[in-house]
Design a protein around this nucleic acid. Structure first.
Lengths: 168, 168
DNA sequence: TTAAACTTTCAGAAAATATTGAAAATATAA
DNA sequence: TTATATTTTCAATATTTTCTGAAAGTTTAA
C-alpha cells in the first residue's frame, strides 16, 4: 500500500473519531495529517491533502494552536508559515485533557459548588437525595482529576507504567 | 431555593455538558433528571419536567437503557413503565466508558492494527515516522485501558483511592 | 372482543454546527 | 512606495444532528 493511502485512511478515521468526541471533523483531520507528517506543512499543503477550504484550514489550524496540539514553524527563506503537530502522544493527551477540563468541567464544577451551599426547600427525602448526588459527583470529579494527573505523568515514568499495569 | 429550581439548573448544565461530549442534549437532560429523582419517573413525568416530546423521551430513554445507565421499573398496580437511573456514580462512569470504548475506540484500534501489519511504499523517513505514530497510538490506548480498569475499581477499594491520591 | 392506556416509529421540520469562498487585512519583497 | 504573497474574517450556504407529533403498534382490563 502507498504511504499516502494509509495516511488517508488514518486521517478519515481520526476525523470521524473526532466528531463523536465533539471536535469538528476538519480539525481532527488536520490534526491527523500533521501527526502523520514529520516536517510541518503549509496551509496550501493541508488544503491539498484534506480537500478543505482555505478558511476552514486557517480557522482549525489556529484552534489546534489554541489547544497547544500544533505549533507554528518558520522555514528559512520561506514566506509562508508551516505547522507542525506535537508528536509526543502523552503530552498531546495532556493538552487535550486540560483544555476540556477548562472548557467543560469547570462550569459544571462551579455549579455543583454553588448548589452544595444552597439551602433547598422541598420534601425531605428528595432534598437529601439531591444533595447526596451533588456530593457524589463532586467527589467523583476530584477522583478523576487525580487519575488524570497520574495519566499525564505515566510517560516520563516507566515505574508508574509498570505499577499501573500490575494493579489493573 | 426550591428543590425543583436547583434540579432544573442541574438538568440544564448536564445537558450542555452532554452536548460537548458528543451525547445528545435531550439524553443528557433526561439522565440528569433521573439521577436527581430517587423514585423512577414515567414517560409523562419526564415529558413534563423536561418539556421534550414523547418521541424524543421514548427514544432517549431507550438509548439510556442501552448504555445501562437507566433501568425499567414496574410499579405494582400501575400500567405505565417507570424509569430509574443507576445512582452509583462509579458504575455509571464505568458503563459510559465501556460503551464509548466499544463504539468509538474499537474501530480506530482495528484500523491501527491493520495499518501496522501493512507493508508501506514511500520515502523511508516518512514511512518510519508514520509507523512510529501508529505504534505510539496503540501503546497509548493500551495504557489508557489499564488506567480505566483501575478507575472502575476505585470505588470499591478505598486503599486504591488513597494510593492514587498519594502518587498523583 | 372492544376500548382505553400506553409505547414505538419515523417522515418531515427545526436547530445546531461546520464549511466555503471571496473580500479585506496584513505582511514582505522589490 | 507599489506589487505581490499570505493570512484572516465572516456572511452565506451546506451539512449533520436532533426533535416533533401524529399515526401505527402493542398491551392490558373489562
Amino acid at each position: 500500500m502507498k504511504l499516502q493511502e494509509a495516511q488517508g485512511q488514518f486521517i478519515q478515521a481520526w476525523g470521524s473519531l473526532g466528531s463523536s468526541w465533539g471536535i469538528s471533523k476538519s480539525m481532527a483531520q488536520i490534526h491527523a495529517l500533521l501527526l502523520a507528517s514529520p516536517n510541518g506543512l503549509s496551509t496550501d499543503d493541508i488544503m491539498g491533502r484534506t480537500q478543505l477550504s482555505r478558511g476552514n484550514v486557517n480557522t482549525n489550524v489556529r484552534e489546534l494552536i489554541n489547544w497547544r496540539l500544533v505549533r507554528k514553524k518558520t522555514v528559512l527563506g520561506e514566506r509562508k508559515e508551516f505547522f507542525e503537530a506535537i508528536h509526543d502522544i502523552y503530552s498531546m493527551a495532556q493538552h487535550i485533557m486540560e483544555e476540556r477540563k477548562r472548557r467543560e468541567m469547570e462550569p459544571v464544577l462551579s455549579l455543583l459548588k454553588d448548589l452544595k451551599k444552597t439551602e433547598l426547600e422541598g420534601k425531605d427525602d428528595e432534598v437529601k437525595h439531591f444533595q447526596a448526588l451533588i456530593k457524589d459527583l463532586e467527589e467523583f470529579v476530584a477522583q478523576m482529576e487525580n487519575l488524570l494527573n497520574l495519566a499525564s505523568r505515566i510517560n516520563s515514568n516507566s515505574y508508574l507504567k509498570k505499577m499501573i499495569k500490575a494493579i489493573s
